[in-house]
């Protein structure tokens, strides 16, 4: 009953959405790319998509500059 977030093992929480997880992990950056098990989650779905048990979540934040 755990998940991996940016290679860190944390507890899996039933019915937790991407938005909830970002809050729990204190990822407060406004602009992030989230992938669950290698699949991109569009930002508009952050408050609906639930994190499955045993999943690998990658969170990358985008910083301006180019």
């Amino acid at each position: 009953m755990s998940i991996e977030v940016n290679s860190k093992v944390v507890d899996w929480v039933e019915n937790e959405t991407v938005k909830d997880l970002l809050k729990r992990m204190r990822y407060t950056f406004p602009l992030v790319v989230v992938k669950i098990n290698d699949k991109v989650v569009p930002r508009k779905d952050f408050s609906e998509v639930k994190i499955p048990d045993n999943s690998k979540v990658a969170v990358i934040h985008m910083i301006s500059g180019g």
Binding site: P30, L31, V32, V33, V40, P42, R43, M62, I63, S64, G65, G66
Partner: peptide
Amino acid sequence: ALDNAETKTIFIE
């Protein structure tokens, strides 16, 4: 190779 974080994210997605 964009500059703004918002545009970068939208583009990648």
